[in-house]
Design a protein around this nucleic acid. Sequence first.
RNA 1: GCGCCUGUAGCUCAGCUGGAAAGAGCAGCGGAUUUCUAAUCCGCCGGUCGGGGGUUCGAGUCCCUCCAGGCGCGCCA
Length: 708
Amino acid sequence: MHAESLLELLKSRFSTAIGDILNQPAERVDPVVRPSAEARFGDYQCNAAMSLARAAGCKPRELAERIVAGVRLEDVAEPPEIAGPGFINVRFRDAYLAARVAGIPAAGSLDRLDIPPRARPQRVIVDYSSPNIAKQMHVGHIRSTIIGDVFARVLAFLGDDVIRQNHVGDWGTQMGMVILGIWHVFRLDAEERVTDAAALVRHFEDAAAAVGANAEPGARRTRLAALAEEMSQALSKERSGRWGAWLGEFEAGRTRIAPTLDVLTSAYRFVNAVEDAPESGGIGVADPLRSRPVPLARLSNHIVAEMLHARHAEELHAWRIAREVSLRETQHMYDRLGVLLRPEDVCGESFYHDRLEGTVAELRSRLTERDASRPASAPYGVVRDDQGAVCVFLYDETHQPLFKNPEGEPLPLLIRKSDGAFLYATTDLAAVRYRIEELGARRLIYVTDARQVQHFRQFFAAARAVGWACHEVSLEHVTFGSVMGEDRRPLKTRSGSTIRLSELLDEAEERVAAVIRERQSALEATAPALPEEELRTLARAIGVAAVKYADLKNDRNSDYVFSWDKMVALQGNTAPYLLYAYARLRSILREAGADAEPDALYASDATPAASAGAAPVRLDHSTERALALRLLRFREALAVVAADLSPHVLCTYVYDLSADLTQFYEACPVLKAPDAATRRSRLRLCDLAARTLRLALELLGIRAIERI
RNA sequence: GCGCCUGUAGCUCAGCUGGAAAGAGCAGCGGAUUUCUAAUCCGCCGGUCGGGGGUUCGAGUCCCUCCAGGCGCGCCA
């Protein structure tokens, strides 16, 4: 039997009392119960008297007195005190807090800490991470991945039916470039027998430089013309079915050539450089399917078009290879980061490809001018063709455009380009429909950076206008700020390129290892040296935790300054400090041996001593009481995170809990407690604190460490 | 030009949706201590909450306005 949270309990008691006074049903009263700002104002305060005094027709202080007279709290709290203009301060009775803490059962196979699941669970989509898979994951992907994972964990813990969706960019122009890149990889393997991944990367870097902006124009033109000739020949072979054979060989040689994402990325960059070269528009590539040559600058677009129309299986086959290689590497990164995302959560752009045509048709038939001529009671949309593109224009109830361009004209949401291609708005609309109608989602959470806010507002409005998202469906765009370097510019390497996620984690581990070594040498006299192997393991775990925690601890909307020194620091609100607090608890519980086994610790409730009045938990010292109160308030933090989607609230909670713990240790010896009952009580507090800390960290996606 | 985000102690940030005398950490200064893991605890120093106006019994929080920084604004995602 789960008891209601302390906050819920007070809210309900005060609502009843105030409802009686105002002659209103209790459900309609906001009792304005808050945790007290300071300890001298009790544990919680009810601030309703001030705001309701006018309605009650009396002075705030007088209303406060009537509330205090009417509220029933004798069973849980000391008599409430009225202070200032009409604050009602409530302090729980120590015995009540002790009983509540003692009421939390031993950990089951699924440790819920007696926190009840939601009364009304929802099917929730969390759309997060969603990288473009043609490229290595870099720092730009880290926030969505880490923040979104917390939502998936917290909402699932609270009982929601969470469906993770990794909406990867696995379709479109960038994949055309990768396909061309694969073609080059293959060509080098087949014709020049370059099979070493590092050599391939070097080759593509050199080749990209040869056609880059710094190359001599004459040489560049010669080089590009030669490339166009090679590709013309290749396409002619491909169209006669020979490329398929090459791809077969390529696949067979994959273990030999190891087409890592590195290789694909460098090949992609090479293709990009070719298409961007100033001369590429004027140099053509012959494709037997076309009467006229395809400009080199548009070759990947052409390839994508072939892929889209599935006229040739080769492009699709190359696409599959590129996708598979990319996704495998992406999964490695998720595993290393310790996020929940799995291959089965991938549902990317390509998934929606054959729904796009229908999506546009449906929007066109349902958002017609006819609706625009009617009096509107809600925002609505109209699909119109404009400059050859299919556009959704969105208006509010008063027929004013919801979005405007810099010229002040209505800004449409484009769902089909003038060349017939679809856009990401089309995919997003197809996805929102799929998620609501086929996956049955009632809450859709999108975790992306704040720059996309207008796009989300537009396509949310379109989804509402067309009726795919009714008012019972919640569409939430969860934004976050940028990661800044210490120079206040977006985080980059010293040379100005983006930082790969793998490099970031490598460095985090290095920094943590250095901090541990330093600590070791400072303690050399007292602590045995840590074997190198263990140090690496420890550094790996703490390094990832440090990066994730640093990302989560700030309000997600503000840009945050990335600081190695701060995130790996042993003091302050950092992952190392929290992991240490947990390890220290585990150390005490280990020392206690059998006494701290769940059987012994929790069975004591049923012993004759317990029934004779020796309560299993006693809160004699103020730090014990503060710790107990903190433990009982874990649910409040979780509720805020679930409602506001703000992970930093949970971070603040674990930090406060850790701080309570150190103060508790300072004042209250556990193993050397003055008597057996106190020792057992304190061990129980330690066990509950360890379980709370472990669970809270887990919900933040951070694995606790048993010893440091 | 319009829209969104941000502005709180020297630095990095909280501030639970309008409540009491604005809080942490770091840095600085001073103390504690033969440690159940000192990766500790206690104290001190430090604030015109970007400026101004308004609403309110009450504003860091809501409204208006100005200032500073960041981002976005039609066929990229």
